[in-house]
Every structure is written in structure tokens, then in C-alpha cells.
Amino acid sequence: MTDASPHWDDLRIFLALARAESLSTAGHVLKKDPATISRRMQRLEQNLGVRLFNRSPQGYLLTEPGQRLLQHADAMEQSFINAEQAVADSPDQLRGSIRIGAPDGCASFLLPQVVEQICQDNPELEVQIVSLPRIFNLSKREADMAIAVSRPQTGRLIVQPLTDYQLSIAVAKTWIAKHGEPLSLEDLKPHRFVGYIPDMIFDSELDYLSEIGINPPRLSSNSVVVQLNWARQGAGPAIVHDFALPFAPELMPVLRQEISLQRTFYLIRHVDDRQVNRLNRFARLLTEGVRAEAARLAKQVAQAYPLEP
């Protein structure tokens, strides 16, 4: 390698900037001053004799040579990851850090107890759960794996069904005391519903109210946890994950025989990670745990609110 050839540290900075498209965001990820990152990329471009980024007020976007370098830098990064795992891996224990991206309903009501059990069995493992109401970009390494409510159609990804789950209309018991228990969906339509902000629904699978013929909600949030807590306060009916109901005793599902929505969570990983044994083992434990926990909570709901024959 000549002095003009890029070293791994240069490529690591290049990768961070290519994924973040922002000096400040890349600096936060790398814990480096943005001015330092800018100088290092200018030096890398001078050494290679090409422009890697188009700089604009919108950020740093890759040029065609930058896109070509990105493919090789990604491959080098994956080789380093594989080498680290080969050295650090243990047949008995999972170690290191794993980041999972998930929608907030799953992140709040399923993952904590599942991940806690995995970590009890693997005390040297560190897990980060990132709860965001959007789709994660694994190509930009925002997470090691992600959970989504629909199967992605593009990208170099490994996708597997994680678990099916049900959603029901739920209202607070105080709401029922005030308005009475509804006997049909028509009984609910005049009332104020709680739901997603329509223009912030990032996946059509989340457009529950439109599916059951309800107009846009008068109380809305991009967070399912906020919606749940609104409903708990008696604000109005909401579509609630059945697996969240055991955590909200103030709520009860209604019209379960008339309205019951089924969805599926998918576990998504980058295709390059299929050779990383540690991530394979964690994905298997996560899948087993989420399925078991979803079934346990569904059983609780079925016992508490049995369907009439």
C-alpha cells in the first residue's frame, strides 16, 4: 500500500459520512470534530484524485466514484466485523453490543422482557433497543437488525417472519361507564378516536382506522405508546395491540368478534451479516423469545376477555 492509498481509518470516516450525509451527525457517531472529518475527507479525495462527495446545503451526497468506493469500504468493514467475531466469539456466551431497531409498540411491550432473559443468560452481552416510528436503514448500519411491520421489497436483506399478532379496538373502563359498552362499530363512529397522525404513517400496515372505515382521528400521535396512554385516560377508542393490553388494566377490548386486525412483525438483517455467528445466535434467541412472549400475552388476553360462542 502506497502513502496515497486510503488507510482503514480514512475509510471508516468515509463510511460514517456517507451514511450520515452530514458532518455533524458523522462527528457524533465517530466522536470527532466535524472540521476534522472535513479535513480528512478532503485529504482522502486529494490522495485518490477524485471527488467523493457533492457538498450542498442539504448535506454530503456521494458522487459516482464515491458510490464505487462505498462498495469496497462496506466489504472491508464487514471483513473486520467477521474477524472480530471470530476472535471474540464463544460457544457458550454471547458478548459485545447488539443494536435492535423496532417500532415503539414492539419495543415497549415485547422486547424488554425477551431481551432481559437473553442478557441474563449472556451477562457479557450489551443490547440497545432503538424505538423509532419509522423504518430503519440497515445499509447505513443504523442497527444490527430491525423489526418491521411489513416485508421490505428492496435491499440486500435477510427477512424472516418474527411473530403474528392481533389488534383490537380498546376503550377505557371509565369511558364505558360514561358512554356505555358499544354493540357495533356504528356505536363508536360518533365518538372521538385516538390514532396515528395521518401524514406520519410510515407504513400502510399501520393505517388501522382507514381499514375499519373510521375518519382521521381527532387525537393523534406518531407514537403508539402515546395513543395507548390517551386511551387509558378515557380520551376515546383506539386500536391497541392485544399484547399491550395486560400492561394497561384501565383498558378493555370491545367488538372483538366484529373487529380484529392481524399483522406480522418481520425480523430484518443485512445480508452480509449472515456469516456472523453471534448475530445468527442472537436472532434465533430473539425469535424464540418474541414468539413465546407474544403467545403468553395473547393467552392472558383470551382468558381475561373470552370471545362469546
Rank of each mutant, 00 (worst) to 15 (best):
A83V: 02
E45V: 08
Q85D: 15
S56T: 15
L69N: 01
P57I: 14
Q85H: 09
R40N: 12
H28Y: 13
R43F: 03
L44R: 11
Q71H: 06
F53H: 08
N47L: 02
S24G: 00
A83I: 01
Q58N: 14
E84V: 00
I37V: 15
S38Q: 07
V29S: 10
K32D: 11
T63R: 03
I81D: 04
G49D: 08
L23D: 06
L48Q: 13
H72Q: 13
L70A: 02
Y60K: 01
E84M: 02
N47P: 00
G27Y: 11
E77L: 14
E84F: 04
L69R: 03
P57Q: 11
E64H: 05
Q71G: 00
A26S: 08
S56A: 15
A83S: 04
I81W: 05
Q78H: 08
Q42N: 14
R43C: 02
E64L: 13
R40T: 10
S56K: 13
I37S: 05
R68C: 00
Q71K: 13
L70Y: 08
R55I: 15
R40D: 11
A75F: 05
T25V: 15
G66K: 01
S22R: 14
S38R: 14
L48A: 11
G59Y: 11
Q67E: 12
L44F: 12
R55S: 14
D33I: 01
Q67K: 14
Q46P: 05
L69A: 02
G59F: 13
G66S: 01
L52Y: 07
V50H: 03
F53A: 05
G49V: 05
L69S: 00
R51D: 02
A35W: 10
G66Y: 02
H72A: 12
L44Q: 12
G27V: 09
I81S: 04
I37C: 13
Q71E: 09
Q85R: 08
H28V: 09
P57A: 14
L48E: 04
M76T: 01
P65D: 06
A26C: 12
L70E: 01
A75R: 12
R39Y: 14
L61P: 00
Q71D: 02
G27C: 07
L44C: 12
M41L: 15
F53I: 05
R68I: 03
M76W: 14
Q67T: 06
H28P: 00
Q71M: 03
K32S: 15
